[in-house]
C-alpha cells in the first residue's frame, strides 16, 4: 500500500510515494540514490546503515520510511561542505581508519552523533559517575561505537581517528 513521504535528505527536500513496507534505508538508497548508508545485516546489528535523523544517530534498516515522514536525514555524504570534509571524515582519512570502507559511512555518522551525545553530558555503559562530566577516553569511544561493526577489523584506527577529532575540539 502506498503512502506519501516528504524528507529532507542531505539538504534537499524530497517528496515521493512509497510502499509502506519500504525501510528508510531502502528509500535512501533505491529511491533517492543516497548510497552512503550501507545495507550490512539489515537487522540492526551492524550499524552500516547509520545516519543522523533530526541530528541524532539512528539505524535506518529497522525504520519504515513512512514513520519518519517530515524528518531531516543527514548521511555521511551530506556531512561534508562541498569539497571540504567534515572533521570526522578527514580524521578517518588521516588515520587510515578503514580497509574496504563498507562500514565507514555508518561509522562516521555514528561518531558524529556520539560526540554530540557526550558533549550533552550523556553517560555510557562504562561511565563510572553517572552525574559527572563525560571524558571520551578510548574505553568510552569503544563502548559508544559498539553498534558499528567493522569486519576488516580497523577498530584500532577508528578509535585513533575519533580520539583525534575530540583532541582537536578540546585542546589540553
Amino acid at each position: 500500500m502506498d503512502a506519501r513521504v516528504t524528507l529532507t535528505v542531505d539538504g534537499s527536500r524530497r517528496e515521493l510515494t512509497v510502499d509502506t513496507r519500504t525501510t528508510l534505508l531502502d528509500l535512501l538508497r533505491d529511491r533517492l540514490g543516497a548510497m552512503a548508508p550501507k545495507k550490512g545485516c539489515d537487522h540492526g546489528q551492524c550499524g552500516a546503515c547509520t545516519v543522523l535523523i533530526d541530528g541524532r544517530r539512528a539505524t535506518t534498516c529497522l525504520a519504515f520510511a513512512v514513520a519518519h515522514d517530515g524528518a531531516t536525514v543527514t548521511t555521511a555524504q551530506g556531512l561534508s561542505n562541498g569539497a571540504e570534509l567534515h572533521p570526522v571524515q578527514q580524521d578517518f582519512l588521516d588515520h587510515d581508519a578503514f580497509q574496504c570502507g563498507y562500514c565507514t559511512p555508518g561509522q562516521i555518522c555514528s561518531a558524529v552523533g556520539m560526540i554530540e551525545e557526550a558533549r550533552a553530558g550523556h553517560p555510557s555503559h562504562v561511565t563510572r559517575d553517572l552525574t559527572g562530566p563525560v571524558v571520551l577516553d578510548d574505553e568510552e569511544i569503544r563502548e559508544r561505537m559498539s553498534g558499528n561493526l567493522c569486519r576488516c577489523g580497523a577498530y584500532v584506527n577508528i578509535v585513533a581517528a575519533i580520539r583525534d577529532v575530540i583532541l582537536k575540539e578540546t585542546p589540553p
Binding site: 540492526g44 550499524g47 547509520t50 535523523i53 541524532r56 544517530r57 539512528a58 539505524t59 529497522l62 525504520a63 555514528s110 552523533g113 556520539m114 551525545e117 559508544r144 561505537m145 559498539s146 553498534g147 558499528n148
Partner: peptide, 9 residues
C-alpha cells in the same frame, strides 16, 4: 542495552 543508534529509536 542495544547500541547508541538503536536507543535513539
Amino acid at each position: 542495552g542495544a547500541s547508541g543508534q538503536l536507543r535513539t529509536l
